[in-house]
Amino acid sequence: MTSTIERCAAGIGTVLAPLGLMAVVTVAAPAVSSADCGAGEWWDPVASVCRPPVVPLGCENGAWWDPVANTCRPPVVPTPPLCDNGWWWDPVGNACRPPLIPPG
């Protein structure tokens, strides 16, 4: 009796396995909506429109290109100025400070 039930269960599993796999693939695969975007444009699935190509800007003086805002941003760490006569560079204020004189 047990072997008959096991064989029936195996047969039902064999028949239903491809259907379950198709259901998983259908749920897991994202919906693809294609569009005929031309000349380097790309498809934005959120807005359902073709977007123009994004070209990086030529940023200068250590600035970096922010692709989200499509603009040049200042460097994360500013370039320290050349401090003379024993002055030291204060990275918080990005300025040269006078030498520290010990109390006497």
Rank of each mutant, 00 (worst) to 15 (best):
P52D: 03
G104T: 12
P53W: 09
E41W: 08
A39T: 10
V25E: 11
L57K: 02
A9W: 07
L16Q: 00
A28W: 07
W64M: 10
V46W: 10
A17F: 06
P81W: 11
G104C: 11
P98M: 10
T79A: 12
R51A: 13
D44E: 05
N70V: 05
L100Y: 11
V77A: 13
W87S: 15
P91K: 04
A17V: 01
V55K: 06
G104L: 13
W65S: 10
V25K: 10
G38F: 08
V54W: 02
P75R: 00
L57W: 00
V32H: 05
W64N: 02
V77H: 10
P102F: 06
C37W: 05
C8N: 10
R7Q: 14
P30Y: 03
L57H: 04
V55R: 10
P103V: 05
T14Q: 11
P103W: 01
P56I: 02
C72Y: 01
P102A: 04
G86E: 02
G38Y: 09
W43I: 07
T4Y: 13
C83Q: 05
P81M: 12
G93N: 15
W89R: 00
V54Y: 03
P75W: 04
R7Y: 02
R51S: 12
L21G: 08
S48W: 09
C83N: 03
V15S: 00
V27A: 12
W65N: 06
D66A: 08
V24K: 08
V54M: 09
E60G: 05
E6P: 03
T26I: 04
E41D: 13
V24Y: 11
A95G: 07
T4P: 00
V32Y: 03
V25L: 15
A39N: 09
N94H: 13
A23I: 01
